[in-house]
């Protein structure tokens, strides 16, 4: 362990508080360097959503290419997929309601909103599994046609992201239910809500693609 050179650290101590904000430099938290700042967490979430978008874009481009080949027979669009879509929209609405309430400091509504949002999100997943079973009952097996395969693959990959969203929701939910102050949970609720909105948008794009083709 060697001593530092004499020119080292001619600067004043730079401990907690005096290097935050203002300069456009890193938003440091010396007291809790093990976690990112709220902005860092938001950036992290957006990057993750970007990665997931690339994933679904790759899937969609594969869909479009494969669709152009001669053996493509599109799936029907039964009512239950519309019902599922409505469920996912409701999940987003309730989460947004929860977020708005958290920002206004209304903890009770925040708690109710996030609870309902998550329940509808979970209901969507159950609904998608049920949709799979319905299609299988009708004879639309995964290997019978590439259109079927894409339906199962897209809903499965979307479902995997939804399960991640549920984990995030469970964590946020626990924090919110334990917490005494709505303002302290805004960031968590916001991250959860934004991610579920993203999942809704992805589903609308995928569902729209399947409807249009």
């Amino acid at each position: 362990m060697n001593a530092m050179t004499p020119t080292k650290n001619p600067t004043p101590p730079n401990h907690i508080g005096n290097n935050r904000g203002g300069n456009g430099w890193g938003d440091h938290h010396e007291d809790q360097y093990e976690s990112a700042s709220p902005l860092g967490k938001r950036i992290g979430l957006w990057i993750f959503m970007g990665v997931a978008s690339i994933l679904f874009s790759s899937l969609i481009s594969a869909y479009v290419v494969r669709m152009g080949l001669s053996d493509w027979h599109p799936l029907p669009e039964p009512w239950w997929l519309w019902a599922n879509t409505a469920t996912l929209i409701l999940a987003s609405v309730f989460l947004q309601w929860s977020l708005n309430s958290a920002k206004q400091g209304n903890l009770t509504v925040t708690k109710n909103g996030i609870m309902l949002g998550g329940l509808f999100g979970a209901l969507f997943i159950v609904g998608q599994v049920w949709a799979w079973l319905q299609f299988i009952n009708l004879g639309y097996f995964v290997e019978t046609n590439p259109a079927n395969t894409f339906f199962y693959l897209m809903t499965a990959l979307h479902g995997a992201h939804l399960l991640g969203g549920l984990v995030a929701w469970i964590r946020t939910q626990r924090t919110v239910q334990r917490n005494e102050s709505a303002t302290k949970v805004v960031l968590g609720v916001e991250m959860c809500t934004v991610y579920w909105h993203f999942l809704l948008v992805v589903w609308l794009v995928l569902f729209g693609l399947m409807l249009l083709t």
Binding site: G50, I54, L55, S58, L59, E143, P146, T149, L153
Partner: peptide
């Protein structure tokens, strides 16, 4: 890496489908 790996992921999953489920991607 964040922009490129998802395409491989999709390709890998689709190949897994073809291999295990008998699909024809």
């Amino acid at each position: 890496a964040l922009l490129a790996f998802p395409a491989l992921f999709v390709g890998a999953v689709m190949m897994m489908f073809d291999n295990l489920l008998g699909t024809s991607f």
